[in-house]
Write a protein that binds this DNA or RNA. Structure first.
Lengths: 211, 211
DNA sequence: ACCTGAACACCGTTCAAGT
DNA sequence: ACCTGAACACCGTTCAAGT
């Protein structure tokens, strides 16, 4: 029987690709199939599924840093946060996995360093920069966790979903829900990315130090 | 054999209690055990696990509204967001479940209505109120999803975890990571709730309409 | 040294058989 | 009408047996 030769890097490569294509439904059985090897062979090179997902997460974080244009602090931070959100959007379970371990991985460290240094450029001292950094991460990664289930739908079905939610608000009793019915057309309007862009802008407005 | 009489309300009650005590590790087998009935009997009264979790989520949302003090729009919104985050902190999987369905449940609707009406009090028109509403939800629920794994630890172990993360940043090479080492003492400082409070304050600063 | 394959524990869910 | 219990599919993980 042709026993496949596996190595850790090849496994993480394939896992990254698989996560990108199936997101939450990532499974070791499927990974084994793609590698052309028995699923249990993976355990030779990786302690368990969560260690593997952490390695995938780090690879995704490292990718966020490539091809970053020049610009002022706010535009760099904005780009990084949008990229971060998109990365977590395909695999929200990564967030939990990544965040339950010390931040020792190069990709994540590079992202943190860049964000902190841009916030320093903005005029924040290290203490405020750290707090602003946490605020940005919470919003970007958190927003991804929230939107992931709808993001996984096909575009048309996604829009249908949002439309039905808007309709649900519009059809409420205006006497009991005056604010909701008044805002119905604007609730879940546009794309989730639009809504995130607005939230991030408001947060950055609040973060900017008093001049 | 004494066949237990179950009804939907009793099941949702028990499920709510179980989610509160075991969080993510909620299981139908355990719920059946607590009800003193066969786990599969639950399927008589509830379509599947996700419908059950949605009912639990709505109950938690309804609870957020009780005993709300009087106050200006910002303090009410702040309290509601903190409560929302705490509710999702014990069961982050609820967020995904709740958000994949139209917002038709009374508890969630009441929360939305109150937040929108407070944002109206703040001077936002319905369109901006809707966008601000989404921003607040993303931050509050998202932050919970992010912090949930560490929040599940015992307090001492949680603090040990954060301390080890701070140490990891402090021990980086200052030449390669100048901003991270400078901010090391402030990264993951205090409690996750402190960090959320800061993030929420900055977002509310940004949301407040220009006067 | 590394892979295979049987096996196990766990979990959501279905369905025929009971009362 | 409602519950029980056997059964199934799926998934992460372990471990003895292969080469």
């Amino acid at each position: 029987v042709g026993a496949k030769r596996l190595d850790r890097e090849q496994i993480v490569d394939a896992a990254t690709e698989l996560v990108a294509s199936v997101g939450e439904r990532f499974t070791l059985a499927e990974l084994g199939r793609r590698l052309g090897a028995d699923p249990t062979a993976i355990y030779r090179h990786v302690r368990d599924k969560s260690e593997l997902l952490r390695a995938v997460g780090d690879r995704l974080h490292a990718e966020l840093m490539v091809g970053l244009p020049r610009g002022d602090w706010r535009s760099i931070v904005t780009i990084l946060c949008h990229r971060l959100r998109n990365a977590h959007l395909v695999a929200p379970s990564l967030a939990a996995t990544v965040r339950s371990e010390p931040p020792r991985q190069p990709g994540e460290l590079a992202l943190t360093e860049r964000l902190l240094s841009e916030l320093g450029r903005a005029g924040l001292d290290p203490h405020d920069a750290a707090r602003a950094y946490h605020a940005l991460i919470e919003l970007a990664v958190g927003s991804a966790a929230l939107d992931a289930s709808v993001a996984a739908l096909a575009p048309e079905e996604r829009e249908r979903t949002y439309a039905s939610w808007r309709r649900a608000y519009a059809n409420l009793d205006p006497a009991q829900y005056p604010a909701s019915t008044a805002a119905a057309a604007a609730l879940y309007a546009g794309t989730a990315d639009d809504r995130f862009a607005y939230a991030l802008d408001r947060l950055l407005d609040g973060i900017r130090p008093a001049v």
